[in-house]
């Protein structure tokens, strides 16, 4: 009898815990979206920010976030996919492979502030570049590469062995098999992983504080020469991203509408991450369906 009561109580507790977790998410999202979405307007998204007056927008921060994300992925995806290929196809079990695995594990568990410090030491001070977009992107690469390697390795390993055998048995080299059979079959998995990683990179701030900086020079969006000082495309300029902006405004902002800006920026950030999430699921399954059509 007693044990039955205990069982019922325990079940109730577990249901309550599940309810609490769902409630936390619901509360967080409704808070961000109800308070933030009304702040989002075309003007908010396209006006440059102001450090003293009210009514500033997030134009440059938004652009910087997207641009840094783009450059980071441009470096990380090829590196990560190649690393994944190495781990899945070429690494022979042994000490070297174990060491590389430990390295990946270590990079993955580095606190992002430590990654930022390393970036400051190497990409800002040692190179003499100062705060730059490329420095930020390289720091984010270190932060992101273990994820991309793991995602690619898993995706390649999950391709049925028969596919690889079929290609090798035709007298095709291992590398060509990887390029033309394994990677295309692993593509949906890699794509999904890359988009989810993008969401993580988009929201990252600590690694960027000391590498891409807390400021953005005056930008002229008509100036597309990447070597010009005022060009938004210049990768050797400092760039405050949206996530860093939220932190900076809250920590040392002096404009009168801090709350509004922070609310709006947070909503944009969360919506972006949400979009990345949905896009990853939808694109991944759509591509997969298209590739295996007819089965």
């Amino acid at each position: 009898m007693n044990s039955k009561v205990a069982d019922r109580i325990a079940t109730g507790v577990f249901i309550a815990i599940a309810f609490i977790i769902v409630a936390i998410l619901a509360a967080l999202f409704s808070f961000i979206l109800f308070r933030g979405v009304p702040q989002i307007s075309w003007e908010f998204l396209t006006t440059p920010s102001s450090s003293v007056r009210a009514g500033g927008g997030i134009r440059d921060q938004l652009f910087n976030s997207i641009y840094i994300l783009f450059i980071t992925m441009l470096i990380t995806v090829p590196l990560g996919v190649c690393g994944g290929i190495y781990m899945a196809e070429y690494a022979k079990p042994g000490k070297v492979t174990n060491f590389i695995r430990s390295c990946i594990e270590m990079l993955a568990s580095l606190p992002s502030i430590v990654v930022g410090m390393f970036g400051l030491l190497v990409f800002v001070n040692t190179t003499g570049w100062g705060y730059t977009i490329i420095g930020g992107a390289l720091a984010l690469t270190i932060f992101n590469i273990p994820v991309m390697v793991r995602v690619s390795e898993d995706a390649i390993r999950s391709v049925p062995a028969e596919m690889k055998e079929a290609s090798l048995a035709l007298g095709i080299t291992h590398w060509h098999t990887i390029k033309t059979v394994l990677i295309p079959s692993a593509f949906p998995g890699i794509l999904t992983g890359a988009i989810l990683a993008s969401g993580r990179v988009f929201g990252e701030a600590a690694a960027l504080l000391f590498t891409a900086g807390l400021s953005t020079p005056r930008l002229d969006y008509l100036d597309l020469n990447p070597f010009s000082e005022t060009s938004p495309l210049n990768i050797f300029r400092p760039a405050e991203t949206l996530a860093v902006h939220i932190w900076a405004v809250n920590t040392n902002g002096i404009m009168p509408d801090i709350r509004e800006i922070a609310n709006g920026s947070s909503a944009v950030l969360v919506l972006a991450v949400l979009i990345f999430n949905l896009l990853a699921r939808w694109l991944g399954s759509a591509v997969h369906k298209k590739m295996t059509a007819g089965k």
């Binding site: 028969e162 079929a166 048995a169 035709l170 007298g171 095709i172 080299t173 295996t292």
Partner: peptide, 19 residues
């Protein structure tokens, strides 16, 4: 082995066409 497998072809138990 690449040249060898081209000359000595193999077909497997389970049909394994490429997608």
């Amino acid at each position: 082995t690449i040249a060898l497998r081209k000359e000595i072809g193999m077909v497997f138990q389970k049909p394994n066409p490429f997608p």
